[in-house]
Amino acid sequence: MPELKRLPATRIVATPAALDAAEWPDDTLALRFAPDELLVTPPVANLALDDPHAIIIADSGYAGVWLPEAEALAFLEHACEWELPTQRPAFAQGAVAGIAAKLWFEAGRVLLIVPAPLIADFEERMA
């Protein structure tokens, strides 16, 4: 059974314009949860944002696991009532097996992200 691990990340809440203008290192994954909220993993240091009131925190409140695309889709077609994106890469979020989840689709693999306090429930529902 896939094991979810806490995702070390930087979580940012800032003006949408500031997030739009920001650039992220190539080796990071920046997931836009909302127009004013973003999660970057792995964490980034010395972040410069054009928003003096931005909230930038080190975050380990989410957990994730990378799955081969076929394995992920086989699980999601049972666990996910909403239509999954077909283009790649793509970010999507919604209830997966009854748990608020974030999904990052790349060619050949998918990152499943859930709130870390729900790791046990999610793993049980994946089994």
Partner: peptide
């Protein structure tokens, strides 16, 4: 209002 809000209940 011009505010940023972040719930960090799960984070902390």
């Amino acid at each position: 209002l011009d505010v940023r809000l972040l719930n960090q209940t799960m984070t902390l």
